[in-house]
């Protein structure tokens, strides 16, 4: 145990702090990846290695976990995260058209970030507010009953500096 705690010491000080929130065992892999993502908005590749070293788990297995679960992101996120719902209710009300519109306006595909680093576009299965369909969330804000025009208005607000 002492030896492993020592291992954490070799890491960057701010990472050490994150790592030591959980015991150095394989079952900590998911909570640790979640902690890194919460801190940085994504999991830096070096952090995947740090988690593997700290929990004494093969890097391949940690990488497998980081890519298996929908929550984890291995690339940096833009300033604003757009999550468009593609659940059943949104699908019926034309979420596909909204998705195409967003892709066109932002010039990115699902999971990508705009070159100016302002937006990341993600597609999610269900946001759990089907009554507002079609729905997207920008960061923690929800926008419902979307139309292409409404999307443009929302994007413009954030481009003007809305936080």
């Amino acid at each position: 145990m002492a030896k492993r705690a020592l291992k954490a010491k070799k890491e960057k000080p701010q990472w050490k702090q994150i790592l030591q929130k959980h015991p150095p065992v394989p079952e900590s892999v998911i909570p640790l990846l979640q902690a890194f993502q919460e801190r940085y908005g994504y999991i830096p590749p070096e952090a995947v290695r740090a988690v593997a070293r700290y929990t004494r788990t093969p890097l391949s297995q940690v990488y497998g976990v980081a890519t298996f679960y929908a929550q984890f992101r291995l690339r940096p996120r833009g300033k604003h995260l757009i999550r468009l719902c593609q659940g059943t209710a949104c699908h019926v009300l034309g979420a596909d058209a909204i998705l195409n519109h967003l892709k066109e306006r932002l010039g990115v595909e699902e999971g990508e970030t705009t070159p100016d680093g302002l937006f990341t576009l993600e597609v999610v299965r269900c946001l759990g507010c089907c009554s507002l369909a079609p729905v997207m969330m920008v960061d923690e804000e929800t926008y419902g009953r979307l139309t292409p025009r409404a999307v443009d208005k929302v994007l413009a607000e954030y481009r003007k500096g809305k936080t």
């Binding site: 065992v25 394989p26 079952e27 900590s28 892999v29 998911i30 990846l33 979640q34 929990t55 788990t57 976990v65 298996f68 679960y69 929908a70 929550q71 984890f72």
Partner: peptide
């Protein structure tokens, strides 16, 4: 961490094991 299959009990256990 976002996987429907983890509602299946043995996948859930695997997930708890990291």
């Amino acid at each position: 961490a976002g996987a429907y299959v983890c509602g299946e009990e043995t996948s859930l256990i695997e997930s708890l094991e990291g």
